[in-house]
Design a protein around this nucleic acid. Structure first.
Length: 888
RNA sequence: GGGAGCAUAGCUCAGCUGGUUUAGAGCAUCUGCCUUACAAGCAGAGGGUCCGCGGUUCGAACCCGUGUGCUCCCACCA
């Protein structure tokens, strides 16, 4: 069979994915094996695959494929999140393009459009994961609004309400004026913004309680960045110790333009040194002002509608957007003599995570979850390391948040999502129940005359995270069918792979839900990925246009190369700077593997047995190489095993990469490779194929497609690599490994000497070795000969004149060539080396002459220093001898 | 304002229990090679004030203190 010049991933990848699917390798059902379970962090149903998903899912696939090869029952559950606010925003935008406004639709009409959208686009991201090679059990695909899942969310709401952990309350919340919904604190992103600080003078009241004519003496000046909220002011507050305002305590001022009379109060909340030291208090539109309002029983004047326009209560600018009013009110204030000055000011402003609208603090009636109690076991499980975070630094962050946890606002004024199961009677009383009928029964106990027609369900939906916190058990229907076989087997899951950004949104809450509803942690390990950034370290975003087209990259480089590129430099918790050159490296690696395959396939027809095989390579040479690589493989297997257990995935991949490229291709294959069209020793051939298979097995979790392809091209296989069970970890012999290392070192040193003396690659040398252990070189003579292009190798007791001298450890090597040596250059080189060695020797001698070192240091350390000294002395002698031989 | 983390080659990062030939890898750079697996390659090489300062120790990239600079999280003064 003719193999192509380069590896071409596209067709190969699609074919293997199809094959694995047909064979059902990714399917999992409970059995007697130990389970290994991962639930995917469900991407938004409207999402498309981006770099973050690529990293996240590559990691999960690596873990799952590895578990599968280790005899575990690997189960990776796919699915999507309904993402209420994000999806609703997309559907609204889609409808707008078709000329339909949300407000013109009924709830049911809107929802049918939304479902239509979901059916059409909802699966895209899952299809894209297949291209990446993700071995998910597709039969288990879940959605947070599946009927059973929906019912479980409602069940949890009712249960928490019955336990007194869910309540309805009027509070100051973050209001998204674009989506017209409440947001939780976590959904608000604070950004630094260049604002203006307006100084506005309010008139004071005279003895009769009427406004005095406006002037500096008859006024009190406040500073604000939101002058439009002036219309909702209920008081002015100063610090009680502030001498400037002591005479005004208990007096009154007037709201500019509308002349509403408001009291001047004193509270030490107000800072003396900010602005003018006088604060306008607007209880309906500021978190802190609300607190003050409560404390002093101030009037709450809500001057804003749900869309951010001013309400009737504002008296002026009714129906105009608050941002427009901010601009328009200034000239009016100025005209009336209220404006004192305007300063440039930098402050933090909250924006909606989903719609990017400026968030307005607003007083409203919402549903809340009381968090303190359910947070306790969740905090303990992480602190006591029942659940392990990787990297562990995120424990601190988690603890801080959990110890200061606030109640969770779970109602959203949206239609797409789980509708709050609260039902209201006309008098405002309500019941929380699974259905209208059940709610009616409850309400009837107090109001017997009520009928179905009288009661109405809450219009609002639940926060998306109120459903996704059930994900780890509800994908196994752990709440809809408690105690079922699946959830008993798969739960708790093993590893969660997610971004630290959602540690509070999701990770913490899943842990809480796990303890509250399963009495058990949801997963044992949490692997936090970093954020994928561009080369310059910027976050990837649509507006910067620095977000690469992932499917395009997979087309161009192949999925294996993309996985390699993203994994090679991404330790847990570190941001990764994405650079296409890493993908090139991945593609080159594919190609390297492909070429090694071509070499070995070329030997297939030239396998020789018996004497014929011994003509070119001696048995000893083959044995040395085979033996060395055998132990090297065992060593790396053990190292990789340990790294994987510690979730050091990047390092594991680097180790495997170097094992394949350097040890296998550059050293081993070069050592055993027969000459052009020469026969290959049978044992060498069979061992090499076996080694290559082992390498594919170790690499497979990282690069599943090419490894499977090569595995099958190497020889006829009875099974697929995808489900092949990994070889056991075995002990390895370090003396063989160090013999290999010495050989490599000698070869490199000799090649370097050739290079430095301008000996052309084609020019042969005659090599003389001066060593006390001739026998150790006998086995590797042929390797050495080939690797340094020596025509002869002989042993000597004395130095060889007119040769290049190289010292490795305590052995000396003399290279005799037909090339005329440049003795001046040679001498300079030797002198430079001599100086270096002497300096090194000094540091070692200094160390060894320090009595306290010899007394205190461990014996091995002292022995090592002694060996360093002996080696350095030997090298210095060699150099000095060589210098004597020179004629310059 | 509170907290956490980071600083090692041009770039990205390892360096785990303080000692492993005067600090390692990949990428990039330079030199020489189209050597019948591979130029998407091969063989080599150069490149470091381990952020500064002070301390502990026989010994510090690693431990302690301090300064500087970056990053992130939380809270937020209108």
């Amino acid at each position: 069979m003719e193999l192509s010049k380069n590896y071409i991933p596209n067709e190969v990848e699609a074919q293997w994915y199809e094959h694995w699917m047909q064979k059902g390798y990714f399917k999992s059902t409970p059995d007697e094996r130990e389970p290994y379970t991962i639930v995917i962090p469900p991407p938004n149903v409207t999402g498309v695959l981006h770099m973050g998903h690529c990293l996240n899912n590559s990691i999960q696939d690596i873990l799952i494929r590895r578990a599968r090869s280790q005899g575990k029952n690997a189960c990776w559950v796919p699915g999507t999140d309904h993402a209420s606010i994000a999806t609703e925003a997309k559907v609204v935008a889609m409808l707008r393009e078709r000329g339909i406004t949300k407000s013109s639709l009924s709830r049911d009409e809107f929802l049918s459009y939304a479902w239509e959208w979901k059916e059409k686009y909802g699966g895209i991201i899952l299809q894209q994961l297949k291209k990446l090679g993700c071995s998910l059990d597709w039969d288990r695909t879940s959605f947070t609004m599946d009927p059973d899942y929906y019912q479980s969310v409602i069940k949890v709401f009712i249960d928490l309400h019955q336990k007194g952990l869910i309540y309805r309350g009027k509070r100051m919340i973050n209001w998204d004026v674009r989506a017209k919904t409440a947001l939780s604190d976590e959904e608000v992103i604070y950004k630094e913004v260049q604002s203006k600080l307006y100084y506005v003078r309010y008139q004071l009241a005279d003895a009769e309680g009427n406004p005095m004519p406006i002037s500096a003496e008859n006024g009190i000046t406040i500073a604000t960045v939101r002058p439009e909220t002036i219309l909702g002011d209920s008081a002015i507050c100063v610090n009680p110790t502030d001498e400037r305002y002591k005479h005004l305590h208990g007096k009154f001022a007037f709201v500019p333009l509308i002349n509403r009379r408001i009291p001047i109060i004193a509270d030490d909340y107000v800072a003396l040194d900010f602005g003018t030291g006088a604060l306008k208090v607007t209880p309906a539109h500021d978190m802190n002002d609300y607190q003050l309002g409560q404390k002093y029983q101030l009037e709450i004047i809500d001057t804003m509608n749900d869309d951010g326009t001013l309400s009737d209560a504002a008296q002026l600018f009714i129906g105009e957007d608050r941002m427009d009013v901010r601009k328009k009110i200034i000239p009016q204030l100025e005209a009336a003599g209220h404006l004192v000055k305007i300063e440039e000011y930098t402050n933090q402003v909250g924006f909606s995570e989903r719609t990017d609208a400026v968030v307005e603090p607003r007083l409203s009636l919402q549903w809340w979850v009381s968090m303190q109690k359910i947070a306790e076991p969740a905090l303990a499980s992480v602190m006591e390391e029942e659940i392990n975070f990787h990297p562990a630094k995120f424990k601190n962050l988690y603890r801080h948040w959990m110890e200061n946890i606030k109640d969770w606002c779970i109602s959203r004024q949206l239609w797409w999502g789980h509708r709050i199961p609260a039902y209201y009677a006309p008098d405002g009383s309500f019941a929380v129940a699974a259905s209208l009928e059940e709610a009616l029964e409850i309400l009837k106990t107090n109001q017997p005359s009520l009928t179905i027609a009288d009661i109405k369900q809450d219009e609002d939906c639940l926060d998306t995270w109120f459903s996704s916190w059930l994900w780890p058990f509800e994908v196994f229907k752990g709440l809809s069918y408690p105690g079922n076989k699946e959830v008993s087997y798969y739960y708790p899951t093993n590893t969660l792979v997610t971004a630290p950004e959602i540690i509070f949104f999701w990770v913490a809450r899943m842990i809480m839900a796990g303890f509250e509803y399963k009495n058990q942690l949801p997963f044992r390990d949490v692997y936090f990925t970093g954020i994928v950034r561009d080369k310059q370290g910027r976050k990837m975003s649509k507006s910067l246009g620095n977000s690469p087209d992932l499917l395009g990259l997979i087309d161009q480089y192949g999925a294996d190369a993309v996985r390699f590129g993203i994994m090679i430099a991404s330790p847990a918790g570190n941001d990764i700077l994405f650079d296409e050159s890493a993908l090139e490296q991945g593609r080159n690696f594919n190609n390297k593997l492909w070429n090694a395959l071509k070499l070995i396939k070329g030997w297939e027809s030239r396998v020789a047995v018996g004497q014929e095989a011994n003509k070119d390579l001696t048995k000893a040479t083959s044995n040395f190489s085979i033996n060395w690589f055998d132990h090297r493989l065992k060593q790396v297997r053990a190292e990789v095993e340990e790294m994987m257990q510690q979730f050091r995935l990047s390092e594991a991949l680097k180790t495997i990469y170097s094992l394949i490229w350097d040890d296998f291709c550059s050293w081993y294959l070069e050592w055993v490779k027969p000459g052009f069209e020469q026969p290959v020793d049978g044992e060498v051939y069979h061992q090499t194929v076996a080694y290559f298979e082992s390498l594919m097995e170790i690499l497979h979790p990282f690069m599943p497609f090419i490894t499977e392809e090569i595995f099958h091209l190497l020889q006829e296989q009875s099974e697929d690599l995808c489900i092949k069970q990994a070889s056991a970890i075995q002990p390895y012999d370090t003396s063989i490994l160090s013999a290999g290392e010495l050989l490599k070192k000698v070869i490199s040193a000799l090649r370097d000497a050739r290079n430095k003396n301008q000996v052309k690659p084609k020019d042969t040398i005659r090599l003389f070795i001066q060593t006390p252990n001739q026998s150790s070189y006998k086995a590797i003579e042929n390797i050495l000969k080939k690797q340094v292009n020596a025509e002869t190798i002989s042993y000597t007791d004395t130095s060889i004149a007119q040769s290049i001298v190289v010292a490795v450890e305590q052995d000396k090597f003399y290279l005799e060539t037909n090339v005329v040596l440049d003795e001046t250059a040679l001498k300079a080189e030797l002198l430079k080396d001599l100086e270096h060695q002497q300096r090194f020797l000094e540091t070692v001698q200094k160390k060894l002459s320090n009595e306290r070192f010899v007394q205190n240091a461990k014996q091995e350390v002292v022995d090592l220093e002694k060996k360093k000294m002996a080696d350095a002395e030997a090298r210095i002698r060699t150099i000095q001898e060589s210098l004597q031989h020179l004629s310059v």
